[in-house]
């Protein structure tokens, strides 16, 4: 059992949870994740380590309620516990002084990109962040991103805040303005990552994406997280989750992520039903 030190909503349906996990706090590097099992009957789901405090022995995760497992996590309050948490997993982000580095986050991808943006800044890069959300209320980590960025942009699909449009449009604008860009990191929904890859491809800008296939163990044992990169099968949990965006087969990833759609729906329906009846806890 792992204790939750604090749990607060950052936006509707997006919660920041700080958990006591001293070994992981000490060891984790930007780009790594944990596998979490909220309760005894829970799924093992991967969540990026958004930050840590090695002294306090805590790590922070930022969770967007998608299906049953993430919604259940988002019901957790300060003082509750998490059944299992293991990590840090995955290969840490490759960090060096590239020059100008652009970090792009879409939705909860902003949270996943945040630790890497911090590391890029610490490595002496000129850091530009572009964070997209559907609408103003869903913008997260605005202050945190500003603090690590030399330039920080927010985009909203509906124009309710910041730049009106998609993150890719903002990125194109930066490229068109003649700014030399040496490195792009893009994390968010698959269509967004694919679109970013297409924007940077003609310019040959090194671009990295963090892939989110379905995982079970997170240690390279099951092969469920396999993705196709450069026409080769790779295991995202050990070889990734970050890969060269220009070589990723995004279609295969989004196809494979549909594998359990009917079951996910069934889980959510059963879960919502229980919530209504107040049968949880």
């Amino acid at each position: 059992m792992y204790n939750i030190v604090s749990a607060i909503f950052l936006a509707e349906n997006i919660k920041k949870i700080e958990i006591q996990a001293p070994r992981i706090a000490k060891k984790r590097k930007a780009g790594q994740f944990v596998m979490i099992r909220a309760g005894e009957h829970g799924e093992r789901i991967p969540l990026t380590i958004a930050g840590s405090d090695p002294e306090k022995g805590t790590i922070t995760i930022i969770v967007q309620g998608m299906g049953k497992s993430t919604r259940e996590l988002n019901l957790k309050e300060t003082g509750d516990t998490i059944h299992d948490i293991v990590g840090p997993l995955g290969t840490p982000s490759h960090i060096e002084k590239f020059g100008t580095a652009v970090s792009i986050g879409g939705g909860v991808g902003t949270a996943i990109a945040y630790p890497t943006a911090v590391a890029l800044k610490e490595a002496g890069n000129y850091v530009i962040t572009i964070n997209g959300a559907r609408t103003r209320d869903l913008v997260i980590l605005e202050d945190e991103m500003k603090a690590v960025s030399d330039e920080a942009y927010i985009t909203t699909d509906d124009g309710s805040y910041g730049f009106h449009g998609f993150v890719t449009q903002k990125l194109q604008e930066l490229i068109d303005s003649g700014k030399p860009i040496d490195y792009v990191l893009a994390i968010g929904p698959i269509p967004m990552m694919k679109a970013v890859a297409e924007v940077t491809r003609p310019y040959g800008i090194p671009t990295v994406v963090s892939l989110n296939p379905v995982m079970v163990d997170g240690t390279g044992m099951c092969g469920g997280c396999r993705v196709t990169v450069d026409n080769e099968t790779r295991f995202a949990c050990v070889d990734g989750p970050e890969f060269d965006a220009h070589k990723v087969d995004f279609k295969n990833l989004s196809d494979r992520n549909r594998m359990y759609l009917p079951e996910e729906k069934q889980s959510v329906e059963a879960f919502s039903h229980k919530c209504h009846l107040g049968q949880l806890h």
């Binding site: 799924e43 093992r44 049953k68 079970v216 044992m221 099951c222 092969g223 469920g224 196809d255 889980s267």
Partner: peptide, 27 residues
């Protein structure tokens, strides 16, 4: 979709007890 390694298939069923889905969450 629908192609598994034995490890994944067996891990889902044995370790995560998917044969009781949806009582256990892993499909």
């Amino acid at each position: 979709l629908g192609v598994y390694a034995a490890n994944e298939f067996l891990t889902r069923v044995n370790l995560m007890q998917s044969y009781t889905f949806p009582e256990n969450d892993t499909p």
